[in-house]
């Protein structure tokens, strides 16, 4: 992205309030071209490969997932998972692409007794 963009470039969505042990969805949406290196621009020049090379999501240090390979994720990828937690806390997602750009986003969930 050549132009500086104010604001966010990702969404991490969790319900604000859940019961202890209740299953809920975590949704992660990241703005990233996931350039494969096989596409050309309108002038016929190859667009340089730039994929996400690391991406992980944790809850207070406990892993939700850690991506080892993301070769075929779509541009502006989304990933959703079903999780359950026992206490209130924060989900943190972190990623880095082949050009060294890093990103992160977090979202809090409050847990009440079941």
């Amino acid at each position: 992205m050549s132009e500086p963009i104010p604001g966010r470039n990702a969404r991490l969505l969790v319900p604000p309030l859940v019961r202890t042990g209740e299953e809920f969805q975590v949704r992660l949406l990241i703005q990233h071209p996931m350039e494969t290196g096989f596409r050309r621009d309108v002038d016929g020049n190859i667009l340089e490969v730039n994929l996400l090379e690391s991406l992980s999501l944790d809850f207070e240090g406990q892993p939700v997932f850690n991506a080892l390979t993301m070769n075929a994720l779509t541009a502006n990828p989304f990933l959703t998972f079903v999780v359950a937690v026992k206490q209130s806390g924060k989900f943190n997602a972190r990623w880095r692409d082949m050009k060294g750009n890093v990103g992160s986003i977090s979202a809090s969930v409050r847990v009440v007794a079941a």
């Binding site: 963009i5 966010r8 470039n9 969404r11 949704r27 949406l29 703005q31 502006n76 959703t80």
Partner: peptide, 12 residues
Amino acid sequence: DDLNPGMLWVDQ
């Protein structure tokens, strides 16, 4: 809206 990539542009 949580899965619609267009919402990233809306946020910006």
